[in-house]
Amino acid sequence: MKRLFENKTIKALLVAAFWIFVWQCAAWAVGSELLLPSPADTARALVLLCVKPSFWISCALTLLRVFAGFVAGMLLGSALGVLTAISGFASSLLSPLRSVVKATPVTSFIILVLLYLSSTLTPMFIAFLMVLPIAWTNVANGVLSTDAQLIEMANVFGFPKAKKLKCVYAPSVLPHFLSACTTGLGFAWKSGVTAEVIAHPEFGIGKAIYESKLYLETPELFAWTAAVILLSIALEKLVILLLGRIVKWN
């Protein structure tokens, strides 16, 4: 058993099998597909959904909204992180904004944003809003934790600003930025899909989840949730792969 756990793939498969078994046992114990569908019911519902074009349209549009919101949040959050780390005035002025965004419940934002934006744009904006403070805080911490001795060294050896940024600050901030990416992606998915549940765009996973719940299609609800999890994992892997390539290239 110990040897089996040394192989990463086998370990992952065994862990997954264990939790699917626990789920199956729970489904047997409950004995109602309406309350808790079994893994097989969910898989069947997922296969049935996969043959419908609307499933793929919903997945693609949700993916697009979440990704667009994530990218915008990372870009603006990183810029604000740098700005507030290097300027005390900007930090004093803008930090309350970050605290408000962090503390406000996502549903309040969704309902508020729906007053101004369409149901299609709202999930994107909400994903952006949830990612923004994560990128902001992480990047600011990265800039502030840059080794002061390396900055002094760069000054002594006359590094111009761009070189200092490339050789000292960027590599120091990178681990914080990557951490913000993985955390932010999870938040973007959760908030984006939640926004779709409330905003009801024409196509979207969140809307489909809401409708499954409305018509008591619990296996379908589980299937849509599985789709969110799979898409989220796929997107996270893709983003990490792309960032890894960019870092290596540099």
Partner: peptide, 16 residues
């Protein structure tokens, strides 16, 4: 004047 230095700590860029 452009002084050059070996610091008490090595201060090498760890990623290079």
């Amino acid at each position: 004047e452009r002084p050059s230095a070996v610091f008490q700590e090595d201060r090498l860029l760890p990623w290079f």
